[in-house]
Each structure stands twice: as C-alpha cells, then as structure tokens.
Amino acid sequence: MMWKTVLITIFAAGVLADDFSQITAVVTSQCTKNNAEDKVPEVEAALRTFGNCLKGLVDLNVLKTEIEEAKPNGALDEVFKKYCDKSAQLKGCISSVLQGVRPCVGNEYANHINDAQNSTNQLIDFVCYKDGDRIALFIAEGGPECFQQKTENLKTCFLNLKQSFPTVESANNLSLVEKCAKVDEMTSCIVKSLEECSTPTPANMAESLIKFMRKDSPCHTALPVSIV
C-alpha cells in the first residue's frame, strides 16, 4: 500500500505543473497495467480538478513570501491559521482525487483508498492542531533547514525500508508484525537522523507525527512498541 500511496502522491503533485504531458504518460501506463485504458481521461480529469482545487487554496510562491515576511515578526502562527482554516476544503480535494484515481490503482490497492484518506486527514489534523501552531514552531525552529541538512540520511532511511519490500510478493510474505517492525526501523532512523540537528524541535515534531499516525494504524495493536 505504501508505494501505491506514493504513486498517488506523485500524480497529485504533478497536476500543479504547467506541463501535464509527464503525468499523462504515468496515468496511461498505470491504467494500462490495470486493464483500465478507457479510464485514462477520467483519471486525468480528476487530477486536473485536484490541481485546480489546490491552486485555489494556496499559491506556494505567495505562501513562501508570507512565511519569510512573518519570521522576523514572530507572526508565523497568523500565516498558518489562515491556511489551516481551509483544511476542510483541502480534505475534500484529497478525497475527490483519491476516488478519482481508484480505477487505475488496481483492485488490491483500491480497497485501501479509505486508509489513504484517513492517513491524509490525520496528517492535516496534526499540522493544523491549534490553528497551525505546530507547523509554525517547526519552521521558526529551523525544521526545513534541518531536513535539508539531513537529506542524504533520510534517503538512506527510506532506501533501507524499500529494500525490505523489493516486490509486492516479498511484502505479502511478511506478517503484519514483521511489516510494522520494518516501518518502525525506518521511523526510528528518521528521528535519530533529525536529532543531530542544532535544535530538538524537528526530531520531536517528526516523532510526534509518527506516533500520532501510528496510533490509528494496524501496527498500534499488532506491535505496540516505541519507535525509538
């Protein structure tokens, strides 16, 4: 499920680009693989609608300017409150696109669309807790810079997990507990990498987010252990 969710995310990110040709190629390939060539226009339309929905909620260039202007004044919380007030609309956008790509993700993964929806809703709720106080603190405390500094370390964490699931068959051969243990290894790797930054906030925030999302996952009951 993890890699299908990543694929959906790639679809979603691509609709913000001016050149849609690469997304068309990916959609066509994915739909063809799942014997749904006739659904290509439908999925493309869903992705375009999603892109327009996002653009209507946030202009990334404007947001970046607002963040930079707010930093010296300690007004980041005001910036994120404005955008978190739109979280309900964002959830609606995401729900629509997840349903829209359903015809081309295959029957095995289509059954997990609701799980993906719940996960994204949890992420939005976490980020927008208390009108975005968490994300404001994360940026004020150098969170983005920390992630940038540790890019290679984080890539290694993800690569190690990917190597644990080289194929769908190999993933299916693992028990739920084994899968959860592999994911926990990755998340522990992420937190420990971020702990090397100059402030503890990025690592603390990442750990809090992971625990927040994990508590409503099957791993919470299958493998109730700390991630670090």
Rank of each mutant, 00 (worst) to 15 (best):
K162L: 15
Q163Y: 08
Q163D: 08
S164R: 09
S164T: 12
S164A: 14
F165D: 06
F165E: 02
F165N: 04
F165R: 02
F165K: 04
P166G: 03
P166Y: 11
P166V: 05
P166C: 06
P166T: 06
T167A: 05
T167I: 01
V168D: 15
V168S: 14
V168N: 12
E169A: 15
E169G: 07
E169R: 11
E169S: 13
E169N: 09
S170L: 13
S170A: 12
S170V: 08
S170D: 13
S170Y: 07
A171W: 07
A171P: 01
A171I: 08
N172R: 15
N173F: 01
N173A: 14
L174V: 00
L174Q: 12
L174C: 02
L174A: 07
L174W: 01
L174K: 15
L174N: 04
L176C: 12
L176S: 08
L176Q: 13
L176Y: 10
L176H: 08
V177A: 15
E178Q: 15
K179V: 10
K179N: 06
K179D: 03
C180E: 05
C180T: 09
A181W: 02
A181L: 08
A181N: 11
A181S: 11
A181K: 13
K182I: 00
K182Y: 00
V183R: 06
V183D: 09
V183Y: 12
V183P: 06
V183K: 08
V183I: 13
D184Q: 15
D184L: 09
D184C: 09
D184A: 13
D184E: 12
E185Y: 04
E185Q: 14
E185V: 04
E185F: 10
E185P: 00
S188D: 14
S188G: 15
S188A: 11
C189V: 04
C189T: 10
C189F: 02
C189M: 06
I190A: 14
V191D: 00
K192Y: 07
S193G: 02
S193I: 00
L194I: 03
L194W: 02
L194D: 06
L194N: 01
L194Q: 02
E195W: 00
E195L: 05
E195S: 11
E195F: 00
E195T: 02
E196C: 03
C197F: 03
C197L: 06
C197R: 02
C197K: 01
C197N: 01
S198Y: 05
S198K: 09
S198A: 12
S198V: 09
T199P: 01
T199C: 07
T199K: 12
T199S: 13
P200H: 05
P200Y: 03
P200L: 03
T201H: 06
T201I: 13
T201Q: 10
P202M: 01
P202Y: 01
A203R: 04
A203W: 01
N204W: 06
N204G: 15
N204L: 08
N204P: 01
M205R: 03
M205C: 10
M205S: 10
A206Y: 07
A206L: 09
E207C: 11
E207R: 12
E207Q: 15
S208Q: 12
S208L: 09
L209Q: 08
I210F: 15
I210C: 07
